[in-house]
Simulated scan of single mutants.
Amino acid sequence: MQQHIQPPEIAITAGAAQGGASFAVFEYACAPVFDAWMTDQAETATFDVQFHSAQIGRMILGLAGMTGAHYRYERNERKVAQTGLELVLVQMITEGSDVRIVGGREIVSRPGDIFISDLTRTIATTTQHCRNVTVAVPRALISDSEVDLDRLHDRVLMADTTAARLFASHLATTWRERHSIGAGETEMVAQATGQLLASLALSTASREDVQRSISASVLVRVCRYIDDNLGRADLGPDLICREMGLSRAALYRLFEPLEGVARHIRNRRLVRVFRSLTSRRIEVRTIAEIAYAHGFFDMSAFIRAFKARYGMTPSDARTMAAMLPPEAAPNGIEEGGSLLRHWITAIGTT
C-alpha cells in the first residue's frame, strides 16, 4: 500500500492591524525572488498579506493574496545575480489584477490569466489588489520536455484559452489532493506539472512540422549530448551530426523551433557559466577559467553574449552575488517566512 504523507506546509498572515509590519512580512517572505516596495507610503498601514504554501517534491504550490495598498515587486539584474535561482515561476490570477511588463509592453491581467516567468530573467509588476495561485518549478524538471526553456519566459496563457483552463484545472486538483499524494509520488507530481506547463505554454508555437518529421526522443538525446559536451571546443553541427547519426538538414530542422543549434549551445553554456558565477559555493576559478571550462574560448565574444542575455557583465554578476546580506525576519514570521525562503532557495539552486 502506498504510504500517504502530509506535505510540508506553511501559512503566513499579516493584516492592517499590524500596521507597517504587514508589508515587512511580504518583503521578507518574497525576498529570494523579488524586491518589493510600496508605491504610496501613506497606504502602508492598510496592507494585508496571506500565504499558504506546500512543498510537493521539488515544487512549491501555494495561494497568495496581497490587498489594501499599491505596491510594486520586481526581479532586476541585481536580484537575478544575487539569488541565482534556476526556477520557472507561474502565477495564475484568481481575484483582482496587476500590471505586468511583458515583452516591453504593459499587460493588465484578469482572473484566469496565467503568467510564466523564467527567474534567470527580469520581471516587473505593479498592483493594488491581487490574489493568485503560484507555482515554482526547477527548470531542470522540464529540461527533457523538448523545448528551449528560455522560450517560456514572458509567456501568457489568457484566461479564455484551452491551455489556461487545462493548467488551472491541474493546479486546482493538485492543491485539493495534496494530502493524498503518496510518499513516493511527490517528485512525479512536480515533474508532471512542469512538463504539462511546457507543453501547454508552447502549444501555439510553430513546431508541429518539426515534431512530426523528427522523433521527440531524438531531440532529447541530442540536447543531452550537448549538455554533456559543452566544454568541447569542437562542439557544433559537424560533431553532433557525426556522433548522433544525423544529416545537417535534419539537425537544423530539429533545432529550428529552438532558434538554431548554435544558439542553443551558446545559451546552455551561458546558463552553466551564470550558475557557477552566482553559486553560493566557494569558487576559486577566475571568470576566464570558468568561461573556458564551459566552451567559451574568445573572452570578448563571451562577455558580449553574457551581457546581452543577463544585462550585466560576468564580473558584475559575481560581485552582486557576493553582496547579498543576511536578513532578519520581521517579528512573528520567523518560522513560516524563513521556511518559505529556505524552500525557494533549496529547489532553485540545487
Rank of each mutant, 00 (worst) to 15 (best):
48 D>Q: 12
48 D>G: 04
49 V>Y: 06
52 H>Y: 07
52 H>N: 13
52 H>I: 10
54 A>R: 13
55 Q>R: 15
57 G>M: 11
58 R>S: 01
60 I>H: 06
60 I>N: 06
62 G>Y: 11
63 L>N: 09
67 T>K: 09
68 G>E: 10
68 G>H: 04
68 G>F: 13
68 G>W: 15
71 Y>W: 15
71 Y>I: 13
71 Y>K: 05
72 R>S: 02
73 Y>K: 13
74 E>W: 12
74 E>Y: 13
75 R>E: 01
75 R>S: 01
75 R>P: 05
77 E>Y: 08
78 R>L: 06
79 K>N: 07
79 K>R: 15
82 Q>C: 03
83 T>W: 09
83 T>N: 08
85 L>H: 11
85 L>V: 01
85 L>F: 02
86 E>L: 07
86 E>Y: 09
86 E>S: 07
87 L>C: 06
88 V>C: 15
89 L>S: 14
91 Q>R: 15
91 Q>V: 01
92 M>G: 00
92 M>P: 00
94 T>F: 05
94 T>K: 03
96 G>I: 14
98 D>H: 06
100 R>C: 02
101 I>P: 00
102 V>H: 13
102 V>E: 08
103 G>H: 04
105 R>N: 11
107 I>D: 02
107 I>C: 02
108 V>E: 09
108 V>K: 11
109 S>I: 03
109 S>A: 07
110 R>C: 01
111 P>E: 01
111 P>M: 09
111 P>L: 13
111 P>K: 15
111 P>Y: 09
112 G>L: 13
112 G>D: 00
113 D>A: 07
114 I>C: 03
114 I>F: 13
114 I>H: 08
114 I>M: 10
115 F>T: 00
117 S>P: 00
117 S>T: 01
119 L>M: 15
121 R>L: 03
121 R>C: 04
122 T>M: 08
122 T>S: 04
122 T>I: 12
122 T>A: 04
124 A>C: 07
124 A>F: 08
125 T>A: 03
127 T>K: 01
128 Q>D: 11
128 Q>W: 12
129 H>F: 12
129 H>D: 06
130 C>A: 07
131 R>P: 02
131 R>Q: 08
131 R>L: 14
132 N>H: 13
132 N>T: 06
132 N>C: 05
133 V>G: 00
133 V>M: 11
135 V>I: 05
139 R>C: 07
139 R>F: 10
141 L>K: 11
142 I>L: 15
143 S>P: 00
144 D>E: 03
144 D>W: 11
144 D>N: 06
145 S>L: 03
146 E>C: 06
147 V>W: 08
148 D>M: 13
148 D>L: 15
149 L>T: 06
150 D>Y: 10
150 D>W: 14
151 R>C: 05
151 R>W: 04
151 R>I: 02
152 L>P: 00
156 V>W: 12
157 L>R: 13
159 A>G: 00
159 A>V: 02
160 D>A: 04
162 T>H: 07
163 A>N: 13
163 A>F: 07
164 A>N: 01
165 R>D: 12
166 L>D: 10
166 L>I: 11
167 F>I: 01
167 F>N: 04
168 A>W: 09
169 S>Y: 03
169 S>N: 01
170 H>K: 09
172 A>R: 12
172 A>D: 14
173 T>E: 12
174 T>P: 00
175 W>A: 08
175 W>C: 02
176 R>V: 02
176 R>D: 00
177 E>C: 08
178 R>Y: 03
180 S>T: 14
180 S>C: 09
181 I>L: 15
